[in-house]
């Protein structure tokens, strides 16, 4: 059977592919899981939070730093930080803005859950199509839209060289992949510490467990919710910057697939559970990569979602179980 030979043959290559892809899924999945933790809401506009960061990264690399060829040494570090911070901020702010405009008005009026869902889908479509229309040729309210992105995918310049840094079991690892793994691990550890070990983190956990009681105990619910959206947004922002850097592309609809996959990862790991999102992301990345090796790329989704169904059959609340943020 091709499957077994391919998997054996491509084991370390596909492990590498799966881990890098999974690290990105994990970072995006955090946003879904945290928002679900505090609001029991699937923030479908989260994929656009991610997309915004890939666009900011494009501008950072291409225009602010004028990158035309891969950088190295201290320049590289400065460029990476100089892109990462604005990308994370932009995504964080986008997430907070979505909360303000699409969810808070509904929350105030005690709207039914379905309204939130529709509002989320609406926000997602509105943002991505806004970027599609921002090609300098369209107007909204008779105000010309700036030329920011447009309908065609835009290339992001190569910042990190694609040359192999080292080989692990015969599989080359380039700087981009190493960077993704390193940044993802650092982010995830920091976030985990933050939620478990700080006052604000305790607030988030309290709101997730019981909003009313938390409010009675003096927790400012709105502030916690905004913080949650912001942190989830910055994680998607970091993921977006790494994504743009690794794949050298951004587009108005680039968030759609990673968004769906990350949502799946969050459910797989146990929605509302931060460590679950991390685990779910890595698992999904690996399952997809090995699924491709085993069959063919067009089966990747069938396998990934098949695994999801099987996992949910045996563990209906995901691998680590549904826990209120932590």
């Amino acid at each position: 059977m091709d499957c077994v030979t391919n998997v054996v043959d491509q084991f370390w290559d596909q492990t590498r592919n799966g881990l890098t892809l999974g690290a990105i899924y994990a970072m995006i999945a955090l946003g879904y899981t945290m928002v679900y933790g505090v609001l029991q809401l699937i923030n479908f506009a989260h994929s656009e939070v991610f997309m915004v960061s890939t666009v900011v990264s494009l501008y950072a690399f291409r225009d602010w730093f004028g990158i035309t060829e891969p950088a190295s040494g201290i320049t590289l570090i400065l460029v990476l930080i100089g892109a990462l911070i604005p990308a994370m901020l932009a995504s964080g702010i986008t997430a907070v803005a979505i909360e303000r405009l699409a969810y808070r008005p509904l929350r105030r009026r005690g709207a039914p859950r379905l309204s939130f869902l529709i509002s989320a889908i609406g926000a997602s479509l509105a943002i991505s199509y806004l970027f599609n229309l921002m090609d300098g040729q369209h107007s909204l309210l008779f105000v010309p839209l700036p030329n920011i992105l447009g309908p065609a995918p835009q290339p992001v310049p190569d910042v990190v060289s694609g040359e192999a840094l080292f080989s692990l079991f015969g599989t080359p690892w380039n700087g981009k992949r190493v960077l993704i793994i390193v940044v993802a691990v650092v982010m995830l550890v920091v976030l985990d510490r933050f939620v478990r070990g700080t006052r604000l983190g305790r607030g988030i956990r309290a709101v997730a467990q019981d909003q009313e009681t938390a409010a009675l105990m003096g927790v400012n619910i709105n502030r916690i919710i905004v913080t949650t959206f912001f942190i989830g947004g910055t994680m998607a922002g970091a993921a977006g910057m790494l994504y743009a850097l690794n794949f050298n592309v951004t587009a108005w609809n680039i968030g759609f697939l990673p968004g769906i996959k990350a949502f799946t990862a969050a459910v797989l790991g146990g929605i509302g559970n931060i460590r679950g999102a991390m685990l779910g992301g890595l698992m999904l990345g690996l399952v997809e990569s090995f699924g491709v090796a085993c069959t063919a790329p067009h089966w990747a989704n069938v396998i990934a979602f098949g695994v999801l169904v099987v996992v949910l059959m045996f563990r209906p609340t995901g691998i680590l179980g549904e826990r209120a943020v932590a």
Binding site: Q10, D13, Q14, N17, G18, L21, I254, S289, V292, H298
Partner: peptide, 20 residues
């Protein structure tokens, strides 16, 4: 003879297959 997932961004699993 394989189909890819259109609109995807990460093709590395597919590329590993082509390489091997």
């Amino acid at each position: 003879f394989e189909g890819i997932e259109t609109g995807a961004t990460d093709f590395s699993a597919f590329i590993t297959g082509v390489e091997k």
